[in-house]
Design a protein around this nucleic acid. Structure first.
Length: 400
RNA sequence: GUGGCUGUGGUGUAACCUGGCAGCACAGCAGACUGUGGCUCUGCUAGUCCGGGUUCAAAUCCCGGCAGCCACC
């Protein structure tokens, strides 16, 4: 049996928020926690020393991408993800199932899992060709790197993840679109259930396997999937799939699913806006992962506390490229203690951004990741002190 | 001085010959991004060197000016 365990150390009396500790062979993770995403064994633009300096407790790598490049056998030879990237802490890995969606339906229909399907502009981007085909056996993918076709199924995903040597692995699943109808969502869910059992059979027992609940935004399917997945001997439970077409839908889905779960750790796949951390911790989520903080950092959006004056449309962000920061000597967020904020001004970061200096990506990513991790720390401490709800309302209060 | 060529948003250009909604790229301005293929996507601002003529209609044709470049004295 794996050196894996999870212990809930405190429950918030007013909500389902809880404090816990995940223990793995590579160390502990204090929860609730936001897991920075390192798809290709690197949090894009950061190295493992940066992650250490940020105090990251763990990271999450991707099966599909590392299988294609450099190849999971190479990662294995180099000591697994930990050895390969020089980061000796717990590693999560995603199963590659999500890429069936993001490279298949998602690409074809230009949609993401949260269903922002009606872009502001009238001209919807032209459809692109799907790069994935799904059958009951598994998923055929076209490599995003060279166009060659590859096949992934539950057994192979388990094998690859074993080579990656991650501490916590995800079952092979099919993520559906918010546009998928009931019949298709049901079919995908049943496939995911079948694959879940195969994963349990084939996975490397030194690793901890999380089962993934699907069912889209249909209440009875979510209930079925919750019951089925949690009846199996997974070490943890992940919630995946389409989470509806709005944050309200997502909250509703969590409220259907989480009360039916036992005390095993719960991971919410692919979520992580600032407000989501509060809403989802409140509903009982222990860990999240999301590319958003690093992706938006590279594209010019940097996190700030509401009191530090964010954008009109989003009080948790500033757009560093905006002209008003041209000669602003303040740090990104005067309340932030990250190394970027301690050393550099908005004016300098804007300059690096507009001149496309590579240092910008790193400094911006350091800030956004630090911001998320530090917010999670505040959340944990508030649960400990019993002030979670107060902290949440302080952050999410509507502007008058 | 004489002759020729060229003048289109901030920049580079298309439409000129054959008159008919001035298009594109970059820059600028603003926004988006949720289990990372892609520093990507979506909006917006901004222009016919000046004056006259012909015409229903002129960036486009004609005349004059101005500016730049080239050649010859």
């Amino acid at each position: 049996m794996a050196a894996f365990s999870f212990r809930v150390t405190k429950k918030d009396p007013k909500t389902r928020a809880r404090l816990g500790i995940i223990t793995t062979a590579h160390g502990k993770i204090e929860t609730p926690y936001f897991v920075p995403v390192a798809t290709l064994a690197s949090v894009r633009s950061l190295d493992s020393q940066d992650l250490e300096a940020l105090g990251a407790q763990c990271t999450l790598a991707n099966t599909y991408h590392l299988h294609l490049r450099p190849g999971d056998n190479i990662v294995k030879k180099c000591g697994g993800v930990q050895g390969f990237m020089g980061f000796n802490k717990p590693i999560f890995s995603d199963s590659g199932g999500f890429q069936a969606f993001s490279l298949g339906y998602g690409m074809e229909h230009n949609i993401n899992k949260l269903g922002n399907i009606f872009p502001e502009g009238k001209k919807t981007a032209e459809k692109k060709k799907s790069m994935a085909k799904i059958t009951d056996k598994g998923i055929s993918f076209q490599s995003v790197y060279d166009g060659s076709w590859h096949f992934l199924d539950a057994k192979k995903s388990m094998k690859i993840q074993s080579h990656l040597g991650s501490d916590i692995i995800m079952a092979f699943d099919e993520c559906t679109s918010p546009l998928s109808d009931y019949a298709y969502t049901k079919k995908a869910m049943e496939r995911t259930h079948k694959w879940a059992k195969q994963c349990l059979k084939y996975y490397d027992k030194k690793q901890a396997l999380y089962g993934i609940i699907q069912g889209g935004w249909f209440e009875d399917l979510r209930a079925q999937s919750t019951e089925f997945i949690s009846s199996l001997p997974f070490e943890g439970i992940a919630i995946g799939g389409s989470l509806g077409q709005s944050k309200k839908d997502m909250h509703q889905i969590l409220d259907w699913v989480i009360p039916q779960l036992d005390s095993r750790p719960r991971h919410l796949l692919g979520i992580g806006d600032i407000d989501d951390l509060f809403e989802c911790v409140e509903r009982g989520i222990d860990t999240f992962d999301c590319v958003s903080p690093t992706r938006i950092a590279r594209r010019g959006s940097l996190y700030v506390c509401p009191e530090s004056g964010g954008n009109v449309s989003n009080k948790f962000r500033i757009s560093i490229k905006t002209a008003k920061y041209k000669s602003d000597k303040k740090p990104i967020d005067p309340r932030c203690s990250c190394s970027t904020c301690r050393n550099y001004s908005r004016a300098y970061l804007r300059h690096l951004y507009t001149t496309k200096e590579l240092a910008y990506n790193r400094l911006a990513s350091i800030h956004n990741v630090h911001f998320m991790l530090s917010l999670m720390e505040q959340i944990r401490s508030s649960i400990k002190k019993g002030t979670f709800s107060r902290l949440k309302s302080k952050w999410l209060r509507k502007k008058k």
